[in-house]
Amino acid sequence: MATISSKPVYLSLLLALLCQLLPWSGISLILRPEFLLLTILYWTLRAPHLCNIGTAWFAGILMDLISGGLFGQFALAYTLTSYIAVTYQRRLALFDIWQQAGYVFLLLLLAQLTTLIMKVFAGGELFGWQYFLPSITGILLWLFMMLSPFTIVSHSSRN
């Protein structure tokens, strides 16, 4: 397997940012997965020398800027999440798809929980369980990308 160059990493991150910027509304806004965090997690687990905690922090800052919420909440959530992802990254390479998906799901929940705590501390309201829907759609998207035959992952694992 060839070393991953940095180009696809940053291109995919830019694409994820664009997905995040799409004009979502209504139900789709509540269901919208966190594209940027998913991409960050993917590259953190796959190529930690290219996409590490710093990248995650920067992506978090971008999310803070475009979401217009309290500055730094996404940055902190992404930092924590990618730290845990990096710490267990070598172990994770031994998992199969479903175990990895479960692990990523926990990471997505952690990120959401962190931002939730930030929001509550900043005087926000408590949300219903719908708040965690993006994690569920996120993990479905992750599984879809992993299982679909068109992604880089499946190609490289087949070779």
Partner: peptide
């Protein structure tokens, strides 16, 4: 199939600052 195969090309020992140090730095910044 294994979902993600991580890179073996990046040197075994040297990977910049340790994750904990990075975590500390960026959490503090946040």
């Amino acid at each position: 199939p294994r979902a993600i195969e991580h890179q073996h090309h990046t040197g075994f020992f040297v990977r910049g600052p340790s994750p904990a140090a990075r975590l500390l730095l960026f959490s503090l910044l946040s």
